[in-house]
Nucleic acid binder design. Sequence first.
DNA 1: CCGGTCTGCGTAATCGTTTTCACGGCTGGG
DNA 2: CCCAGCCGTGAAAACGATTACGCAGACCGG
Lengths: 347, 347
Amino acid sequence: MATIKDVAREAGVSVATVSRVLNNSAAVSESTRAHVREVAARLNYFPNGAARSLSTSRTHVIGVLLPDLFGEFFSEVLRGMDSSVRQAGFHLLVSSSHADAEQLLAALHTMRGRIDGLIVMAPDVDARAAIQATTTDFPLLLIDPGVGVEGCNTISIANYDGAYAVVRHLLGLGHRRIATIMGPLRNIDAQQRLAGYRAALRDAGAPSEPELEIPGDFTEPSGYEGGSRLCALATPVTAVFAANDYMAIGVMGALSDAGIRVPEDVAVAGFDDIAMSRYLNPPLTTVRVDPFRLGERAVGRLLSVDRSAVGKHWHHEVLPTSLVVRGSCGSTWGGRARSGAGPLRGR
Amino acid sequence: MATIKDVAREAGVSVATVSRVLNNSAAVSESTRAHVREVAARLNYFPNGAARSLSTSRTHVIGVLLPDLFGEFFSEVLRGMDSSVRQAGFHLLVSSSHADAEQLLAALHTMRGRIDGLIVMAPDVDARAAIQATTTDFPLLLIDPGVGVEGCNTISIANYDGAYAVVRHLLGLGHRRIATIMGPLRNIDAQQRLAGYRAALRDAGAPSEPELEIPGDFTEPSGYEGGSRLCALATPVTAVFAANDYMAIGVMGALSDAGIRVPEDVAVAGFDDIAMSRYLNPPLTTVRVDPFRLGERAVGRLLSVDRSAVGKHWHHEVLPTSLVVRGSCGSTWGGRARSGAGPLRGR
DNA sequence: CCGGTCTGCGTAATCGTTTTCACGGCTGGG
DNA sequence: CCCAGCCGTGAAAACGATTACGCAGACCGG
């Protein structure tokens, strides 16, 4: 592989001149400029990224630490990041599936010297603290960190507002006895959605009861399980708010298997507006979050951080959610509902 | 940030010794070893990746060039890659959304000196040729390149076999007049699936007719459109094979809107076995491909390549597909079918 | 007691860039 | 005619690691 020295030798100039030409960094006569360009192209020369990084201490790469890659949510976040990042001529260095703080830190350390900034989506609070302490030399942005993160840029989802809105919608339709299938309680999104659910009920003067708050773990089977438990309740409910769409699908399956009709007998709502929600039967009322935008904004924010101001100024941004009313709650059920954010696509 | 020099100075040894301790590379007395470790930990020192790469010309990063990131297919491929890569202590440098050969090459060039190997999923044939020509200094693996790629490692999906199997299944159920909704014809998967469809019909003595081969582009709306065209056919069909699941969903929507029942009036089958296929009503008969495994194998293969043998030995691997029979083709329809590869999960 | 091997460690070259500094030659103003 | 200030260029010092080489001292057999 050709190096800058080969180009310099071949072109009869110094390496400094070659560097200047390739970076448009200083005055070089038009003739040598053209000549160097020609030689570089002929030798098929491209600068070595590692060497360049070492010299400039900039890498044009931003690191991404994710808890996992399951489901279309992360996929969309990543797509948003990639879209944003490539406009700026950057790349994404991705590492996921970090169970604990130790693994997270290990991944972070091997990224040392390879990234200009870091985006972390860590549900684990300890890990976040550790990262925040270690990473003083480049910008850091936390996605969806919950509350109480100071000295650090964050961006999160309006989980509370979204849950509040969808439950209020159910209340508005006349439902009084509304259950929820909760997410895993360690998860910050799950906590906030639960809080929104409770607040909406309280504000309507119909406070939640413990037996209406059914555990779940964001998977479809746990939704099915929760749905089955609902069917066994002494006093039946008329509506269910599942903390995410996958669980809502499970609930609808359980109700269907028990011969209970949706939405005639029980209304169902979810959270996330995943692609398949509008193709269900009936289509699912849910809360839309825009994971693409989340990724896009995260990168945009990170790239705009002044490197010298790391740790001095920070900003917490909240990405709004919006209520999407479809057939599963009974208010607009009229057959095939195709409203949604873009067509299903893949491959 | 502490460098190796700081550690050396603080520990009263040379940088060489520090390096040796941290890499376990040569004989160092137990006492200095312990001392250096202690100092490094105290200064919170971690080696700079760029410098290390420059010195060793190994980066512990592999590059991934993708055409796009839409849909769960790519997300799963990426998850498989990540899972495989982190076992080996590597990271993934991702870049996607490359429309043409020029963009692809540009991304590749900025990766120069940053990666130890490259995985490319490029539907564009020209781009592949260009990459293959440029990239002689590290291992390259092509995903799903179609045919005629010599001198290069590849891994692909048994599209032809899968399509053949699903169409033969429909034939076995007694269907004779079977339509297909094709994918975009530039796409190699689409071509191979079409070929499998045709071969199965031909071998059954019921050759395809042009009016049964309906254009599509792998999106759900194009499937709906295709389904509508099917309804308008003079001689109706009794079965449809959509070249992917998203289009099959569209077809089922169109049939439903036209008052045609699935599977009673028309059988429907798809390809890919995306997560939502088994939650449709009726659940979709389809062909399973395992994108996670694809990503996993791709990385595994790449990491096992002997760097000195690049361009000398190569191997083409084909990942098998399997037929998944569910309700939409009428043979096993009996309510909620939950068979599938793992639960729906996300967040 | 002497030459050889082994152990532990330091010196310095190296990887491929960028960038500072200095140095000629040329220009233009006084 | 002289000198200050460009302009184009090259030499060399970073950047932060790894590693070939060499050099002391310990140890051992003859």
